[in-house]
């Protein structure tokens, strides 16, 4: 059975929206970070869907790149969060606003 591309795309869109909502409304920096990862994976899913639909592997190559970059990003991002926590004893991003104006 072939899953129609619409279903996959709708699923990817849903995942992306969930990620966006997580980024916008959650207060824990870790959760926000995970939401960003969800958004990235939603995009990856869309890439794969189109790759298969068009029979072109370029999309899948992109996904590998994104996954690599995401791994790097996690390393840096987590380091930042740990550093923030060490300095401020919190990971609540609504309390981290030293860069205000």
């Amino acid at each position: 059975m072939v899953v129609p591309i619409y279903h996959v795309l709708i699923f990817a869109a849903l995942l992306f929206v969930i990620g966006v909502i997580g980024v916008l409304f959650r207060r824990s920096a870790i959760i926000v970070f995970m939401s960003i990862e969800i958004m990235l994976n939603a995009v990856n899913l869309a890439f794969i869907a189109f790759s298969r639909y068009h029979g072109n592997v370029n999309g899948q190559v992109f996904v590998f790149f994104i996954m690599t970059l995401a791994a790097v990003e996690v390393a840096v991002g987590l380091a930042i969060i740990i550093s923030l926590f060490r300095n401020l004893q919190t990971s609540d991003i609504t309390e981290i606003h030293m860069m205000k104006h």
């Binding site: 980024v23 926000v32 991003i93 609504t94 030293m98 205000k100």
Partner: peptide
């Protein structure tokens, strides 16, 4: 204008969105 620049990361993210 500086009121927009309130330091809340989610605020910025909303504007990007």
């Amino acid at each position: 204008i500086r009121r927009i620049q309130n330091g809340f990361i989610q605020h910025y993210a909303s504007i990007i969105l």
